[in-house]
Design a protein around this nucleic acid. Structure first.
Lengths: 147, 147
DNA sequence: TTGATATGCAATGATAAAAGATACATATTG
DNA sequence: CAATATGTATCTTTTATCATTGCATATCAA
């Protein structure tokens, strides 16, 4: 199955950012789940690392829910990516390749280094964009759609 | 299951490049399969797009096998990636999100654009490296390993 | 204090993408 | 024509991911 954690977390964060600008204090996991057409448990699982990273604040109990910890302009898409994907690399190579020649003895490390470079370049790209930027892009797309 | 087509195709291409420098005319799918600890069918499936892209030349029949179509310095890792992964994007978002608000109506396109940018930056990185460069890196890694 | 309702979290089940396995037609060489 | 390679279709196995269910815990309000 395809891993949709990042796009999903991103949508949730965008919803929280929108709520923030609209003056809504917090959203429940059920509300967020509705937005992504999924279930509250999945939402809460995704929220855990975002909360631990300090991007989202959660309040328990009745009338509980989550909200952004800070202004949307202070959160980059890179922050969200790092939090939700943790140490998972974008690429994984074959493991336990039998060592028999120059290639098989060293590809594993070679590919690992390459994957690291890729991760870095993706994070660079994501870190240049804030949630606030993204929300603005959504408005632009929406305006284009309306025409 | 994790998609290991690119790392696998890369290893095969490196093996073919090494064979080329060693004066070996061609390798069979069985030989390549041994190198990646897999089976000839998987190898041949992976070879199809590489052959179609003109990166690899295949000869059928007894004593058949595959070899690089050109010098390893003329083939970039980007070529290999494009051939083996085809149109598959690095990221896929959730699909069929119900359209209910500014976010849900536009994230799909927003994320698609973002994914395109990521693909582009990864391909940029991969296209700066040739198979010959990679083979040289393997030798460097091997020398470091020997110590 | 208690009922309603939220999060936090564990465990189990369903789904789907990828790789493995098998079989066989076709091509080439000696 | 025998041996052995590729090309390709089909079926099975594996496994990462998401959905579902259940329940403990926290909070608010009547």
């Amino acid at each position: 199955m395809i891993d949709v954690r990042f796009p999903t977390a991103l949508q949730m964060m965008l919803s929280l950012a929108l709520a923030q600008t609209a003056g809504v204090e917090r959203l429940s996991s059920a509300q967020l789940a509705e937005g992504i057409d999924s279930n509250p448990t999945f939402v809460r699982r995704l929220l855990v690392p975002l909360i631990q990273a300090g991007l989202v604040h959660s309040t328990m109990g009745r009338d509980g829910g989550v909200s952004l910890s800070t202004d949307a302009a202070m959160i980059t898409l890179g922050d969200i990516y790092k939090a939700t994907m943790g140490n998972k690399k974008l690429w994984t190579g074959r493991s336990d390749i039998p060592h028999r020649c120059l290639v098989s003895c060293n590809v594993e490390r070679f590919f690992g280094n390459l994957a690291d470079e890729v991760d870095e370049s993706v994070l660079d790209l994501l870190s240049k964009r804030t949630l606030a930027d993204a929300l603005l892009e959504l408005r632009t797309l929406d305006a284009a759609r309306a025409q």
